[in-house]
């Protein structure tokens, strides 16, 4: 009981910060979307670790099992994952369009072109 303690949350925080770092430190738009994905997965992990109960099993009702993990976070994250990929696809579509208009997916170069225009 004592061992994992709060470690799972710190793990999530580290992952989340790596995602955040990718988003703010990189100018490449595809890399930014990858960063957002890492961030997203860390949030998913956060929810799922909150839903875990010691000694619990997967929330599928069966004879002889008394303790289940909390199913509510699972439901939320299940839909969030699929919605996440749909919105990622939308973002990537925008990146493709930006690349067609500007010929680059680097943020600074796009900014420079905007200034010139």
């Amino acid at each position: 009981m004592a061992f994992p303690g709060l470690l799972n949350y710190w793990f999530v925080v580290i992952l989340m910060m790596i995602g955040f770092f990718i988003v703010i430190a990189h100018g490449n738009l595809v890399k930014k979307i990858v960063g957002l994905n890492v961030f997203q997965i860390s949030v998913f992990l956060f929810y799922i670790t909150m839903g875990k109960v010691d000694g619990g099993s997967a929330p599928i009702l069966a004879e002889g099992i008394e303790v289940y993990s909390n199913p509510l976070p699972h439901v939320l994250i299940l839909t969030a994952i699929v919605v996440g990929v749909a919105t990622t696809a939308l973002g990537l579509a925008l990146v493709v369009r930006i690349n067609e208009s500007y010929g680059t997916i680097e943020e600074d170069e796009i900014g420079a072109m905007e200034d010139d225009a």
């Binding site: 997967a58 599928i60 299940l78 839909t79 994952i81 699929v82």
Partner: peptide, 11 residues
């Protein structure tokens, strides 16, 4: 009855 459902199946 088991793990699965519309989202997974669709994907």
């Amino acid at each position: 009855f088991g793990p699965g459902g519309g989202f997974q199946a669709g994907v």
